[in-house]
Protein backbone atom coordinates (compact mmCIF):
# COMPACT_ATOMS: atom_id res chain seq x y z
CA UNK A 1 0.00 0.00 0.00
CA UNK A 2 2.80 2.33 0.93
CA UNK A 3 4.36 1.58 -2.44
CA UNK A 4 1.22 2.60 -4.28
CA UNK A 5 0.81 5.72 -2.20
CA UNK A 6 4.38 6.75 -2.81
CA UNK A 7 4.24 5.99 -6.49
CA UNK A 8 0.70 7.16 -7.18
CA UNK A 9 1.76 10.15 -9.27
CA UNK A 10 3.92 7.88 -11.40
CA UNK A 11 1.25 5.27 -11.77
CA UNK A 12 -1.29 7.91 -12.79
CA UNK A 13 1.15 9.38 -15.26
CA UNK A 14 1.85 5.87 -16.52
CA UNK A 15 -1.80 5.10 -17.10
CA UNK A 16 -2.19 8.37 -18.94
CA UNK A 17 0.88 7.90 -21.14
CA UNK A 18 -0.15 4.30 -21.64
CA UNK A 19 -3.49 5.46 -23.03
CA UNK A 20 -1.72 7.80 -25.43
CA UNK A 21 0.64 5.06 -26.53
CA UNK A 22 -2.35 2.80 -27.00
CA UNK A 23 -3.95 5.22 -29.43
CA UNK A 24 -0.76 5.24 -31.51
CA UNK A 25 -0.17 1.53 -31.14
CA UNK A 26 -3.52 0.70 -32.73
CA UNK A 27 -2.36 2.39 -35.93
CA UNK A 28 0.77 0.25 -35.97
CA UNK A 29 -0.94 -2.98 -35.18
CA UNK A 30 -3.70 -2.52 -37.76
CA UNK A 31 -1.30 -1.59 -40.53
CA UNK A 32 1.02 -4.42 -39.64
CA UNK A 33 -1.88 -6.84 -39.50
CA UNK A 34 -2.85 -5.99 -43.06
CA UNK A 35 0.33 -4.97 -44.88
CA UNK A 36 2.95 -6.68 -42.70
CA UNK A 37 4.68 -3.33 -42.61
CA UNK A 38 6.18 -1.47 -39.68
CA UNK A 39 4.91 1.97 -40.55
CA UNK A 40 7.91 3.93 -39.29
CA UNK A 41 6.21 7.14 -40.36
CA UNK A 42 3.32 6.68 -37.93
CA UNK A 43 5.19 8.30 -35.04
CA UNK A 44 6.03 11.24 -37.25
CA UNK A 45 2.42 11.60 -38.29
CA UNK A 46 1.68 11.91 -34.59
CA UNK A 47 4.31 14.65 -34.33
CA UNK A 48 2.93 16.38 -37.41
CA UNK A 49 -0.50 16.46 -35.76
CA UNK A 50 1.15 18.21 -32.82
CA UNK A 51 2.59 20.93 -35.07
CA UNK A 52 -0.67 21.38 -36.95
CA UNK A 53 -2.32 22.10 -33.64
CA UNK A 54 0.40 24.62 -32.75
CA UNK A 55 -0.03 26.53 -35.99
CA UNK A 56 -3.79 26.23 -36.39
CA UNK A 57 -4.63 27.23 -32.84
CA UNK A 58 -2.57 30.38 -33.30
CA UNK A 59 -5.13 31.73 -35.74
CA UNK A 60 -8.29 29.74 -35.21
CA UNK A 61 -10.45 29.17 -32.16
CA UNK A 62 -9.96 25.73 -30.56
CA UNK A 63 -13.38 24.37 -31.47
CA UNK A 64 -12.42 24.74 -35.13
CA UNK A 65 -8.71 23.98 -34.76
CA UNK A 66 -9.18 20.62 -33.04
CA UNK A 67 -11.48 19.04 -35.64
CA UNK A 68 -9.33 20.53 -38.38
CA UNK A 69 -6.19 18.97 -36.90
CA UNK A 70 -7.89 15.61 -36.84
CA UNK A 71 -9.10 15.93 -40.42
CA UNK A 72 -5.73 17.09 -41.73
CA UNK A 73 -3.90 14.29 -39.93
CA UNK A 74 -6.25 11.75 -41.44
CA UNK A 75 -5.65 13.22 -44.90
CA UNK A 76 -1.89 13.15 -44.34
CA UNK A 77 -2.02 9.52 -43.24
CA UNK A 78 -4.11 8.65 -46.28
CA UNK A 79 -1.70 10.44 -48.60
CA UNK A 80 1.34 8.74 -47.10
CA UNK A 81 -0.19 5.39 -47.88
CA UNK A 82 -1.17 6.36 -51.41
CA UNK A 83 2.15 7.95 -52.32
CA UNK A 84 4.73 5.87 -50.49
CA UNK A 85 3.27 2.42 -49.93
CA UNK A 86 0.72 1.74 -52.64
CA UNK A 87 3.21 1.79 -55.55
CA UNK A 88 5.27 -0.81 -53.71
CA UNK A 89 2.47 -3.31 -53.13
CA UNK A 90 4.29 -6.04 -55.07
CA UNK A 91 7.82 -5.07 -54.02
CA UNK A 92 9.76 -7.01 -51.39
CA UNK A 93 8.91 -6.18 -47.80
CA UNK A 94 12.29 -4.60 -47.25
CA UNK A 95 11.60 -1.95 -49.93
CA UNK A 96 8.34 -0.94 -48.31
CA UNK A 97 10.02 -0.66 -44.94
CA UNK A 98 12.76 1.49 -46.45
CA UNK A 99 10.06 3.63 -48.03
CA UNK A 100 8.50 4.01 -44.58
CA UNK A 101 11.83 5.09 -43.15
CA UNK A 102 12.14 7.53 -46.05
CA UNK A 103 8.74 9.03 -45.27
CA UNK A 104 9.70 9.37 -41.63
CA UNK A 105 12.91 11.13 -42.67
CA UNK A 106 10.91 13.41 -44.95
CA UNK A 107 8.32 14.41 -42.34
CA UNK A 108 10.95 15.03 -39.69
CA UNK A 109 13.07 17.16 -41.99
CA UNK A 110 10.07 19.10 -43.25
CA UNK A 111 9.02 19.81 -39.69
CA UNK A 112 12.55 20.92 -38.95
CA UNK A 113 12.47 23.22 -41.97
CA UNK A 114 9.12 24.75 -41.11
CA UNK A 115 9.94 25.33 -37.46
CA UNK A 116 13.67 26.03 -37.90
CA UNK A 117 14.21 23.25 -35.43
CA UNK A 118 12.80 25.15 -32.49
CA UNK A 119 10.56 23.55 -29.92
CA UNK A 120 7.08 25.03 -30.10
CA UNK A 121 4.81 25.68 -27.18
CA UNK A 122 1.71 23.50 -27.37
CA UNK A 123 -1.52 25.46 -26.88
CA UNK A 124 -3.38 25.00 -23.64
CA UNK A 125 -6.67 23.28 -24.20
CA UNK A 126 -9.07 24.50 -21.50
CA UNK A 127 -10.72 22.00 -19.14
CA UNK A 128 -8.32 19.14 -19.87
CA UNK A 129 -5.27 21.17 -18.89
CA UNK A 130 -6.76 22.05 -15.49
CA UNK A 131 -5.37 20.59 -12.32
CA UNK A 132 -7.29 18.00 -10.44
CA UNK A 133 -6.79 16.17 -7.19
CA UNK A 134 -6.87 12.38 -7.31
CA UNK A 135 -6.53 10.51 -4.02
CA UNK A 136 -4.34 13.18 -2.57
CA UNK A 137 -2.04 13.74 -5.53
CA UNK A 138 -2.35 16.63 -7.90
CA UNK A 139 -2.48 15.98 -11.61
CA UNK A 140 -4.17 17.35 -14.73
CA UNK A 141 -7.56 16.44 -16.05
CA UNK A 142 -5.97 14.97 -19.17
CA UNK A 143 -4.36 12.26 -17.05
CA UNK A 144 -7.77 11.10 -15.96
CA UNK A 145 -9.51 11.60 -19.27
CA UNK A 146 -6.95 9.75 -21.39
CA UNK A 147 -7.61 6.20 -20.18
CA UNK A 148 -11.37 6.73 -20.28
CA UNK A 149 -11.29 8.17 -23.78
CA UNK A 150 -8.91 5.44 -24.92
CA UNK A 151 -11.21 2.73 -23.70
CA UNK A 152 -14.27 4.32 -25.32
CA UNK A 153 -12.46 4.68 -28.65
CA UNK A 154 -11.11 1.14 -28.54
CA UNK A 155 -14.55 -0.23 -27.74
CA UNK A 156 -15.96 1.67 -30.71
CA UNK A 157 -13.18 0.38 -32.93
CA UNK A 158 -13.65 -3.21 -31.84
CA UNK A 159 -17.36 -2.88 -32.55
CA UNK A 160 -16.57 -1.43 -35.96
CA UNK A 161 -14.27 -4.29 -36.80
CA UNK A 162 -16.66 -6.90 -35.51
CA UNK A 163 -19.98 -5.70 -36.85
CA UNK A 164 -19.51 -3.60 -39.96
CA UNK A 165 -18.84 -4.71 -43.50
CA UNK A 166 -15.56 -2.82 -43.74
CA UNK A 167 -14.51 -4.37 -40.42
CA UNK A 168 -15.21 -7.81 -41.80
CA UNK A 169 -13.17 -6.96 -44.89
CA UNK A 170 -10.30 -5.83 -42.66
CA UNK A 171 -10.34 -9.08 -40.78
CA UNK A 172 -10.38 -11.03 -44.01
CA UNK A 173 -7.50 -9.09 -45.52
CA UNK A 174 -5.33 -9.44 -42.45
CA UNK A 175 -5.94 -13.17 -42.47
CA UNK A 176 -5.17 -13.77 -46.12
CA UNK A 177 -4.25 -10.92 -48.41
CA UNK A 178 -4.42 -12.79 -51.71
CA UNK A 179 -7.53 -14.84 -51.11
CA UNK A 180 -9.55 -11.87 -49.92
CA UNK A 181 -8.54 -10.10 -53.10
CA UNK A 182 -9.89 -13.05 -55.06
CA UNK A 183 -13.12 -12.87 -53.07
CA UNK A 184 -13.70 -9.42 -54.50
CA UNK A 185 -12.63 -7.33 -51.52
CA UNK A 186 -11.23 -4.05 -52.71
CA UNK A 187 -7.87 -4.22 -51.00
CA UNK A 188 -6.94 -0.61 -51.58
CA UNK A 189 -10.13 0.65 -50.00
CA UNK A 190 -9.58 -1.53 -46.96
CA UNK A 191 -5.99 -0.37 -46.62
CA UNK A 192 -7.05 3.25 -46.94
CA UNK A 193 -9.64 2.79 -44.20
CA UNK A 194 -6.99 1.25 -42.01
CA UNK A 195 -4.72 4.25 -42.44
CA UNK A 196 -7.61 6.64 -41.89
CA UNK A 197 -8.58 4.98 -38.62
CA UNK A 198 -4.97 4.74 -37.48
CA UNK A 199 -4.34 8.40 -38.30
CA UNK A 200 -7.52 9.50 -36.56
CA UNK A 201 -6.48 7.75 -33.36
CA UNK A 202 -2.94 9.11 -33.65
CA UNK A 203 -4.37 12.63 -33.95
CA UNK A 204 -6.46 12.16 -30.81
CA UNK A 205 -3.45 10.65 -29.06
CA UNK A 206 -1.36 13.61 -30.13
CA UNK A 207 -3.85 16.10 -28.64
CA UNK A 208 -3.69 14.30 -25.31
CA UNK A 209 0.04 13.61 -25.31
CA UNK A 210 1.24 17.10 -26.14
CA UNK A 211 -1.18 18.68 -23.69
CA UNK A 212 0.78 16.75 -21.09
CA UNK A 213 4.23 17.53 -22.46
CA UNK A 214 3.55 21.14 -23.47
CA UNK A 215 6.17 21.38 -26.25
CA UNK A 216 6.52 19.83 -29.72
CA UNK A 217 9.81 19.25 -31.52
CA UNK A 218 10.46 17.67 -34.95
CA UNK A 219 11.74 14.48 -33.32
CA UNK A 220 9.00 14.33 -30.70
CA UNK A 221 7.23 11.58 -32.57
CA UNK A 222 9.94 9.00 -32.98
CA UNK A 223 10.26 7.79 -29.40
CA UNK A 224 6.53 7.55 -28.63
CA UNK A 225 6.16 5.96 -32.07
CA UNK A 226 8.73 3.26 -31.40
CA UNK A 227 7.31 2.64 -27.94
CA UNK A 228 3.83 2.29 -29.32
CA UNK A 229 5.18 -0.19 -31.84
CA UNK A 230 6.81 -2.14 -29.04
CA UNK A 231 3.46 -2.11 -27.27
CA UNK A 232 1.86 -3.55 -30.39
CA UNK A 233 4.48 -6.29 -30.60
CA UNK A 234 4.17 -6.96 -26.89
CA UNK A 235 0.43 -7.45 -27.14
CA UNK A 236 0.74 -9.59 -30.25
CA UNK A 237 0.90 -7.75 -33.51
CA UNK A 238 -2.46 -7.53 -35.26
CA UNK A 239 -4.40 -7.73 -31.99
CA UNK A 240 -6.08 -4.49 -30.89
CA UNK A 241 -6.78 -5.44 -27.26
CA UNK A 242 -3.21 -6.73 -27.12
CA UNK A 243 -1.80 -3.42 -28.31
CA UNK A 244 -3.88 -1.49 -25.78
CA UNK A 245 -2.86 -3.72 -22.89
CA UNK A 246 0.78 -3.61 -24.01
CA UNK A 247 0.67 0.18 -24.19
CA UNK A 248 -0.70 0.51 -20.66
CA UNK A 249 1.90 -1.91 -19.30
CA UNK A 250 4.73 -0.01 -20.99
CA UNK A 251 3.40 3.37 -19.91
CA UNK A 252 3.09 2.35 -16.28
CA UNK A 253 6.42 0.50 -16.14
CA UNK A 254 8.45 3.30 -17.65
CA UNK A 255 6.96 5.85 -15.28
CA UNK A 256 7.72 3.65 -12.30
CA UNK A 257 11.29 3.37 -13.57
CA UNK A 258 11.37 7.13 -13.76
CA UNK A 259 10.08 7.23 -10.21
CA UNK A 260 12.88 4.94 -9.07
CA UNK A 261 15.39 7.44 -10.42
CA UNK A 262 16.69 5.35 -13.35
CA UNK A 263 16.00 8.11 -15.85
CA UNK A 264 18.83 7.03 -18.18
CA UNK A 265 17.17 3.68 -18.75
CA UNK A 266 13.72 5.11 -19.14
CA UNK A 267 13.72 4.63 -22.93
CA UNK A 268 15.97 1.58 -22.92
CA UNK A 269 13.56 -0.31 -20.70
CA UNK A 270 10.92 -0.45 -23.42
CA UNK A 271 13.40 -1.99 -25.83
CA UNK A 272 14.64 -4.47 -23.25
CA UNK A 273 11.02 -5.52 -22.83
CA UNK A 274 10.68 -5.82 -26.61
CA UNK A 275 13.70 -8.05 -26.89
CA UNK A 276 12.57 -10.26 -24.04
CA UNK A 277 9.13 -10.72 -25.58
CA UNK A 278 10.53 -11.34 -29.05
CA UNK A 279 12.79 -14.06 -27.75
CA UNK A 280 10.43 -15.67 -25.27
CA UNK A 281 7.16 -15.43 -27.19
CA UNK A 282 7.58 -13.79 -30.61
CA UNK A 283 3.84 -13.88 -31.23
CA UNK A 284 3.22 -11.58 -28.24
CA UNK A 285 0.55 -11.93 -25.58
CA UNK A 286 -2.43 -12.38 -27.91
CA UNK A 287 -0.81 -13.04 -31.26
CA UNK A 288 -1.12 -16.18 -33.31
CA UNK A 289 1.78 -18.25 -34.42
CA UNK A 290 2.21 -18.56 -38.14
CA UNK A 291 4.15 -21.16 -40.07
CA UNK A 292 5.79 -20.58 -43.40
CA UNK A 293 4.74 -22.85 -46.19
CA UNK A 294 7.54 -24.67 -47.95
Amino acid sequence: MAFIEKNLPYILAGISVGGQYALIAIGYTMVYGILRLINFAHGDLFMAAGFMMVYLSATLPLYIAIPLVIILTVILGFLIERVAYKPLRKAPRMSVMISAIGVSYFIQNSAWYITSGLAKQYPTIPVISNSINVWGSTTTVVTVITPILTIILVAALVALIRYTKIGMAMRAVSRDFETSQLMGIRINTVISYTFVIGSFLAAVGSLLYFTNYTTVTPTAGSMPGLKAFVAAVFGGIGSIPGAVLGAFIIGICENIIKGLGWTTFYDAFTFALLIIILIAKPSGLFGEKSTDKV
Binding site: V233, F271, L274
Partner: peptide, 14 residues
Protein backbone atom coordinates in the same frame (compact mmCIF):
# COMPACT_ATOMS: atom_id res chain seq x y z
CA UNK B 1 12.97 -9.58 -41.24
CA UNK B 2 11.10 -6.72 -39.61
CA UNK B 3 11.26 -8.14 -36.13
CA UNK B 4 15.01 -8.30 -36.52
CA UNK B 5 14.99 -4.68 -37.64
CA UNK B 6 13.08 -3.47 -34.63
CA UNK B 7 15.07 -5.62 -32.19
CA UNK B 8 18.43 -4.34 -33.46
CA UNK B 9 17.06 -0.81 -33.36
CA UNK B 10 16.08 -1.50 -29.76
CA UNK B 11 19.52 -2.79 -28.90
CA UNK B 12 21.10 0.30 -30.39
CA UNK B 13 18.95 2.42 -28.08
CA UNK B 14 19.87 0.27 -25.09
Amino acid sequence: SDYLAIATLGFAEI
